[in-house]
C-alpha cells in the first residue's frame, strides 16, 4: 500500500520542531508499524537524510519503550502498543500523523522520542516495598487470597509506556501512579508503608508537572494493558486517608 506520513521532526529538546511529510510506496500489510518506520528510515539513510528517531526495544508489547501518538491516539487505533500494531489496520492511500507523547513532564529528546524519567522518579519516591535482599521469611508464610493476588497482578501489569499521560487531556499520570500504589496497597507485604508511599508518590507526581485527573477515562480507554480506573479511585482514597491519618505533619 501507499502511505503519506506526517511526522514530527525536532532535532533536540531546544529545537522548535515541525511536522514533515514523507511518502512510502511499498508498505506490506503484514508489517508492524515500527517495521514500516524502519523501511522509511532505511530510505532516508540511503538518501543521506537524518532518519526519524523513535523509541522501541522489545517489539513484543511488554517493555513499554515504544510510544508514538498515531492519528490522534496513543499507540494508534488499536488498544495495544505501537510495536503490536500492524499496517493492516490502515488502508492504501491513508495519511498517518505521527507525533511524540505531549506533556510538560515528558520533554522531547528528538523527533518522536521523549524523556519519561519522571516515571522513574515517581517510583523512586516510594514505588517499592522496603525489604533488603536476604532478610525474608518463607514465601508461603504470607498467604494471599487469590482474588487479591490477581487484582494486584492486574495493576502490576502496567508497562510504564506513558500512553495514559499522552491520552489524557490534562497530561495526568494518575493511572500510572495508581497502578503501582494499588499493587502494593492490595498486598499484605505493602501495607506497612502504605501511607508514606502514597503521600510521597503523589508529591513527586505533582512536582513533575503532570496535570490533575478529571475522570475523563481516556487513560484507561487507551491503556495497552487495560489498567482499570478502579485503581485511580483506590489511589484517591489511599491519599486522602494517608493525609488525614499519617504522622507526617
Amino acid at each position: 500500500m501507499k502511505l503519506t506520513l506526517k511526522i514530527w521532526r525536532q532535532k533536540n529538546s531546544q529545537d522548535k520542531g515541525k511536522m514533515v511529510e514523507y511518502k512510502l510506496n511499498d508498505v506490506s500489510a503484514d508489517m508492524s508499524f515500527l517495521e514500516m518506520l524502519d523501511v522509511l528510515n532505511e530510505e532516508l539513510t540511503l538518501k543521506g537524510e537524518d532518519p526519524v528517531a523513535f523509541d522501541h526495544d522489545c517489539r513484543e508489547g511488554i517493555c513499554g519503550m515504544c510510544s508514538l501518538y498515531i492519528n490522534g491516539k496513543p499507540h494508534g487505533p488499536k488498544q495495544t502498543t505501537t510495536c503490536q500494531l500492524h499496517m493492516r489496520s490502515f488502508n492504501d492511500g491513508d495519511t498517518i500523523y505521527i507525533e511524540p507523547w505531549r506533556a510538560k513532564a515528558f520533554p522531547v529528546v528528538k523527533d518522536l522520542a521523549v524523556d519519561r524519567g519522571a516515571f522513574d522518579r515517581i517510583i523512586q519516591a516510594g514505588g517499592y516495598i522496603s525489604v533488603n535482599t536476604g532478610v525474608t521469611v518463607d514465601a508461603n508464610e504470607i498467604p494471599i487470597a487469590k482474588e487479591i493476588a490477581d487484582k494486584a497482578f492486574d495493576a502490576a501489569t502496567c508497562i510504564g509506556c506513558g500512553a495514559c499521560v499522552a491520552a489524557c487531556k490534562n497530561a495526568s499520570a494518575m493511572l500510572f501512579v495508581s497502578a503501582k500504589v494499588s499493587q502494593f496497597t492490595l498486598l499484605p507485604q505493602g501495607k506497612a508503608e502504605r501511607k508514606r508511599r502514597v503521600e510521597a508518590m503523589v508529591e513527586q507526581m505533582d512536582e513533575e508537572g503532570f496535570g490533575a485527573c478529571t475522570n475523563t477515562g481516556a487513560c484507561a480507554a487507551e491503556c495497552p494493558k487495560e489498567i482499570s480506573l478502579e485503581n485511580i479511585a483506590r489511589l484517591n482514597r489511599e491519599y486522602l486517608f494517608a493525609k488525614l491519618t499519617s504522622n507526617n505533619v
Binding site: K6, Y69, G72, Y97, A103, K169, N170, G209, T216
Partner: peptide, 16 residues
C-alpha cells in the same frame, strides 16, 4: 499548563 504543546491531530473518541 501540563501540556504546553498541543497535538497537531487528536482524536477524542476515548472519552465523553
Amino acid at each position: 499548563s501540563a501540556r504546553p504543546q498541543q497535538y497537531a491531530y487528536a482524536k477524542t473518541n476515548n472519552s465523553s
